[in-house]
Design a binder for these strands. Structure first.
Length: 149
DNA sequence: CGATTTTGACCCGCGC
DNA sequence: GCGCGGGTCAAAATCG
């Protein structure tokens, strides 16, 4: 992450009872709500206005615009996925375009990496990730509206 | 220099 | 059988 502030990590836990508060506090947290036959376990859906620190470093590996959503979805994976074989992955997508945009963060799999040794900057961490997406959306519209060559 | 991000293209699965 | 959508990887570019 170059032009951002990827704070350190915190609260590394590959267990299950970690951010229960967030789920409860965030509001909507549907585990595997997929009506399909796919049994995607280890999936948590959180809603947040500013992506607090999960306690891990994420490396963005893709961005795609989903049909039905006017916002791009970002795909993140644990930075240690290759180093420690951490299968944890995270998907972040904007949920609305309100003033305080709401973002849906979907966590898949658990962290198996042991790299989260940093301190604890849970909240004051970084809204950069999401902000970036929102900014990208705005910037795009702005750039387009501003002036193409 | 290293690390990370960005964009495009490719692939696969499912639906009809 | 074909098409569409979603998901992932790769390479290149950039910043600290």
């Amino acid at each position: 992450m170059r032009g951002s502030n990827m704070l350190s990590s915190s609260g590394c836990s590959s267990g299950s009872n970690k951010r229960t508060l967030q789920q409860d506090c965030s509001g909507g947290s549907h585990a595997q709500e997929h009506t399909k036959k796919k049994s995607r376990i280890g999936m948590r859906t959180d809603y947040t206005y500013a992506p607090y620190h999960d306690g891990f470093q994420w490396r963005k590996y893709g961005q795609k615009v989903i049909r039905g959503n006017a916002f791009p979805r970002c795909y993140y994976r644990c930075t240690y996925h290759q180093d420690h074989g951490c299968s944890a992955s995270k998907h972040v997508e904007q949920h609305n375009s309100a003033d305080p945009p709401l973002f849906r963060v979907v966590y898949t799999n658990d962290h198996t990496c042991s790299g989260a040794a940093a301190t604890a900057s849970d909240y004051m961490a970084s809204s950069m990730h999401i902000q970036q997406i929102a900014d990208a959306s705005l910037r795009k519209a702005d750039t387009e509206a501003e002036r193409p060559p």
